[in-house]
Simulated scan of single mutants.
Amino acid sequence: MRPKTSPAGRRRARLPIAATLALLAAGLGAVPAPAARADAPETVWLCRPGQAGDPCGGRADAPVDCFYVYPTISAQLTDNADLTPGPEQRFIAQQQAAPFGAACNVWAPVYRQSTLRGLQNSPGPARSAALDIAYDSLEGAWQDYLAHHNNGRGVVLIGHSQGSTMLRALIRNRIDGQPAQRQLVAAIVPGSNVLVRRGALTGGDFDSVPGCTEPGQFGCVIAYSAFAETPPPGTRYGVVPTEAGTSGTRGRFVFGPDYEVLCTDPSALTGRSDRTLRSAVAGQEVRAYTASCATGDGPHVLMIGGGGPGTGAPAATALPTVPNPTWGLHLWDVNLAQPDLVDIVAAQTRAYLNNEE
């Protein structure tokens, strides 16, 4: 049985579209969430191998699949999005998921996510209810994918922010300790507080899916939230919730002092002696940033340093903390290590396939 669960005038990098949408959404009023449908709608695929105009590249010949769940991005004026993909979903899939097409066939369902507008209800009962609707939608798409499209291939789960929260719940409910775990190549879920028992790599959100600790390890989780400066009081990431339901009820996530937030340093999983991150900035790969996981009694986050003059990238402390410093470098979680993450997935895939032989 599971347990209970910076200064004025500082130069800033150009804001991604997600940041702009978040700022716009912050001033909007709440609209009641639509009622969940009793019947399960047919899955709408934002990305599907071989699909024309696929923002994830449409590759269909890789030996494993990636199942991508996008972050909070919908600009629809309701607490929950419908199943109509918009330009914002296509944009973020192209930015975050398409690079992984070098290693896998990318599947990405449209799901009834809690929208940007709904962020003003977070945390709280309205946001929790919206996340429950989002999860039910996402789980239905996962079940459809497994039953009709997977054909026994290994799967890499990729998310960010709300997408990572959805995948945490999915692993907890449908993968951890179940037959589908045998197909788990890896889960990459930055920007969400994956919990483990203190001093351990499992025993929190997941009983048997551990945090990744070494190059080539498969069947494990990569989770972190990036900050360039010490997280301020009230930080959203790196700290354990003190009560249930802050991320919706469907995951029945653990909480309380027996747990800590998992932090996985992507630079430690590359197998390179050079621990500088390979990052994607303005469409270009740069090697400008360093990373290390903060431990101890404070927030467990991925501290980012470096960048600035002569590196081809803004200083880490000049990257935007949107909508405020309690979010850290949330909008950059994926970009800061994206080329490294693609290589890590390729190495994990090789290890997974060798194990299957």
Rank of each mutant, 00 (worst) to 15 (best):
R2D: 15
G9S: 08
R10A: 05
A13T: 01
L23S: 01
L24T: 14
A25I: 12
A26T: 06
A26D: 06
G27D: 05
L28P: 00
V31I: 14
P32Y: 14
P34K: 10
R37P: 09
A40R: 03
E42K: 09
T43G: 00
V44W: 04
L46I: 07
R48Y: 04
A52H: 02
C56A: 03
D61P: 09
D65Y: 05
F67V: 15
Y68T: 14
V69L: 10
V69Q: 14
Y70C: 09
L77A: 13
T78N: 03
P85E: 07
P85H: 01
P87G: 10
Q89V: 09
A93G: 09
Q95M: 07
P99R: 03
C104D: 06
C104K: 05
W107F: 13
G118I: 07
S122Q: 11
P123N: 00
G124A: 04
P125E: 01
A126V: 09
A130V: 14
D132S: 01
D132N: 03
S137E: 06
L138M: 12
L138Y: 14
A141I: 02
D144F: 04
D144C: 06
L146V: 15
A147P: 07
H148C: 07
H148R: 01
H149M: 12
H149Q: 12
N150C: 13
N151A: 15
R153C: 02
L157Y: 11
H160N: 14
Q162V: 08
S164Y: 12
S164N: 08
M166K: 11
R168L: 10
R168Q: 11
L170E: 02
R174Y: 08
D176S: 10
D176Q: 13
G177V: 10
Q181V: 08
Q183V: 13
V185T: 02
A187Y: 02
I188R: 09
P190H: 09
L195C: 02
T202H: 03
D205N: 10
D205Y: 14
S208I: 03
S208K: 00
V209I: 12
V209E: 00
P210G: 04
G211D: 04
T213W: 06
E214R: 08
E214L: 07
C220Y: 13
V221G: 01
Y224G: 03
S225T: 06
A226R: 04
A226V: 04
A226H: 00
E229I: 08
T230M: 03
G234N: 07
R236D: 10
G238T: 09
P241Q: 14
P241F: 15
E243N: 01
G245N: 02
G248M: 12
T249L: 08
R252K: 07
F255L: 05
G256Y: 13
G256Q: 13
Y259L: 11
L262D: 06
T270G: 03
S273P: 00
D274K: 01
A280N: 03
E285F: 03
E285V: 15
R287C: 00
Y289P: 11
T290F: 12
S292E: 15
A294E: 08
G298L: 06
G298N: 00
G307N: 07
G308T: 02
P309G: 11
A315P: 03
T317F: 05
P323H: 09
N324R: 10
P325D: 08
W327T: 06
G328P: 04
L329R: 06
L331S: 12
W332R: 06
I344L: 01
V345Q: 01
Q348Y: 02
A351L: 02
L353K: 09
N354C: 04
E356I: 13
